[in-house]
Design a protein around this nucleic acid. Structure first.
Length: 594
RNA sequence: GAGGGGGUAGCUCAGCCGGAUUAGAGCAGCGGUUUUCUAAACCGCCGGUCGCGGGUUCGAGUCCCGCCCCCCUCGCCA
């Protein structure tokens, strides 16, 4: 038989199958197969026997022994190279033999093989992912870092695990702020030159002025509303201006995306749905979900106390404002429908910050009832949210003047700091390579990795020193480790993947530990994709790099013994490929040398 | 008030679908390792009443209840 790509999953299925035939366990038995909590216990453990024994009032060790006998009689375990034993109060421990580790390493040598193995997780499922979805007419700032970085990592993870993915950049290009902006442009007689390098900054400044004006002067506020109404009613002149604003804004965003290696499959902003919200209003009212409240069209969810019409603090889902205009609830509902019916989404993933949780809960509840009432099939809707970036002082990050930190200046600073480090440590590399290749990649990688390494629901403290450190769980450390592995092949004079003929199974503790860690990738993928949490992949890669370093410290690769050399070269090749594939999954492009 | 997140080593954080008599990692501190493949590394030591109090269980950092502290959100912005 060919080796199992993901032994934990196969083991789980096998145990269920065998247990189904045992009267004491039966088909409902959940074996609770997990990676072993302690390497001394083997590679995988089944915890479920204890709970089953309790339910059946049976002796757990006896039950475990019965299950073990049945498993051994079945025969698959031995073929898969899994040793099994009853341990402790009634656990089953499974350990892959060196031969099985070796077989896996031979059978799954590169990213393509891993991708094929992982594809079972989503199996062609049609997923639409919504990120980074910025608002237009503003420069990108630090607040856009997380949706870009997390969104891209989650997208790549889904794609790697077999999803048929559509990246939909749902830009905010139709909101209230356009009234203010257009008003300010008209009052100032500003002529928007898309070619001007300061076009976007000028718009931002104008918006600030306009915003101040409307706050100070009710007449100006009315004028801004009138501008918005004019735009939304299709006034040609307003539309032309709006189009130019959006174009300038998108071009600026694209310059940032390019530096992050981001691309979108479709860009369907809020404006795209402007002729699709009427259907939403109609249908929601027709099926009795939406009603008028204070002049607005709202949806209550009485079964959820917080969104109930009886709540102390009313929090209805406002789908149409009292002035008749749409808001993001309206367009988001229209967007769900479009994604389901036109894009064929079976699942929609929204990557936004955690402050929008109420909105998405209400959106999902509303969509669920609306789709049900109209006989449609609702895609699975998931809100993948994240916490805030804090400054070194522990408060939301800002510049000294209180303005948001521009994303471009973060990239520039990261690149400059990375260049400093590289100049200091690798002055022998060509200057152009340091400046044009290594520094920008290292800088952006540091920025990204710091954003991914902690659980996304946590706030995190922004620290240049930590993200750019070459020690610890950081991008520089991982990139450096990846580069070290590559150097082995330079010295050996062979390409990764070559020189493996005659390789024997891992033998030394360092080889075995590294081989087991390589297989651990499948479990890490499982866990990371379950809740779409990239930090699990970060933790794994850091552990892999550590296992490699330990291996490398006391297992010389380029030795004379051909079998030893071959198997160590194979381990290096897999480590190299896996570190680099893992980094790419996170959106980080590895380096050849640094 | 309601809801969400957080409270684990000096610092930054994993672990939280309950699991195996010693709760992990990184950083910081201390001490080692190199005539040998990138030492930007590796190895070891030091360091924790897992916010507090109850409860469930063979077993709780992990589940339940109560309480305390910090952050975020709460009617027409997204």
């Amino acid at each position: 038989m060919s080796p199992w790509f993901n032994p934990a999953r196969e083991l789980d299925a096998l145990i269920r199958r065998v247990a189904a035939g045992l009267p004491a366990l039966g088909p409902a038995f959940d074996p609770q197969v997990r990676p072993a909590t302690d390497a001394r216990h083997g590679d995988y453990q089944a915890n479920g026997i204890l709970a089953a024994a309790k339910a059946a009032k049976a002796n757990p060790r006896a039950l475990a022994t019965d299950l073990l006998s049945a498993l051994q009689a079945e025969g698959t375990l031995a073929k898969a190279g899994l040793e099994v034993e009853v341990a402790g109060p009634g656990f089953l421990n499974f350990r892959l033999t060196p031969a099985a580790l070796h077989a896996w390493i031979q059978a799954f040598p590169d990213a393509d093989a891993w991708r094929r193995g992982a594809a079972a997780l989503h199996a062609g499922r049609k997923v639409v992912i919504d990120y980074p979805s910025p608002n237009t007419a503003k420069q990108m700032h630090v607040g856009h870092l997380r949706p870009i970085v997390i969104g891209e990592a989650v997208a790549r993870l889904l794609e790697f695990c077999g999803a048929s993915l559509t990246r939909d950049n749902h830009i905010g290009d139709w909101g209230t702020n356009f009234g203010i902006l257009i008003l300010a442009i008209r009052l100032k007689g500003f002529v928007l030159d898309a070619a001007s390098p300061t076009a976007l900054e000028d718009l931002e400044a104008l918006y600030k002025e306009g915003s101040a004006l409307t706050k100070a002067d009710p007449a100006a506020l009315d004028a801004a509303r009138a501008e918005l109404a004019r735009l939304q009613s299709g006034d040609a002149e307003s539309l032309a201006l709006w189009e130019r604003i959006v174009a300038v804004s998108n071009a600026a965003c694209q310059r940032i995306y390019d530096q992050f290696g981001l691309r979108s499959d479709v860009v369907l902003g809020e404006s795209f749905y402007r002729d699709k919200v009427d259907q939403v209003y109609r249908e929601l009212q027709a099926c009795g979900l939406a009603e008028e409240s204070d002049g607005a069209l709202v949806v209550w969810h009485d079964e959820v106390p917080r969104y109930s019409r009886h709540a102390e603090t009313k929090l209805p889902f406002i789908v149409r404002k009292k002035d008749g205009s749409s808001n993001y609830a309206s367009t988001d509902l229209a967007t769900v429908l479009y994604r389901a019916e036109v894009l064929g989404a079976q699942e929609v993933v929204y990557v936004t910050d955690g402050r929008q949780q109420d909105h998405f809960q209400q959106l999902f509840l509303t969509a669920e009832k609306w789709f049900k009432a109209t006989g449609r099939t609702l895609p699975r809707l998931r809100h993948v949210w994240f916490g805030t970036i804090l400054g070194e002082d522990g408060k939301a990050i800002k510049t000294k003047s209180g303005d948001p930190v521009r994303l471009q200046s973060l990239i520039d600073e990261a690149t400059a700091k990375a260049l400093e480090k590289v100049n200091e440590k690798s002055g022998d590399l060509p200057e152009a390579e340091r400046r044009d290749v290594i520094a920008p990649r290292l800088g952006v990688a540091a920025l990204r990795y710091a954003d991914l390494v902690s659980n996304r629901t946590m706030d995190y403290r922004f620290s240049w020193d930590k993200m750019l450190a070459f020690e610890g769980n950081t991008a520089p450390y991982l990139l450096y480790q990846a580069v070290r592995v590559r150097s082995v092949f330079r010295n050996a004079g062979v390409a990764a993947g070559q020189g493996e003929a005659g390789a024997t199974p891992p033998e030394t503790p360092g080889e075995i530990a590294l081989a087991r860690k390589l297989l651990g990738f499948t479990a890490a993928l499982d866990e990371a994709s379950e809740d779409l949490r990239p930090h699990i992949l970060c933790t794994y890669l850091h552990e892999l790099a550590g296992a490699y370093s330990s291996f490398y410290a006391d297992n010389k690769v380029l030795v004379d013994d051909p079998a030893v050399r071959a198997r160590r070269l194979a381990l290096c090749a897999r480590t190299s490929a896996l570190l680099e594939s893992g980094l790419r999954l996170l959106g980080i492009e590895p380096l050849e040398r640094m």
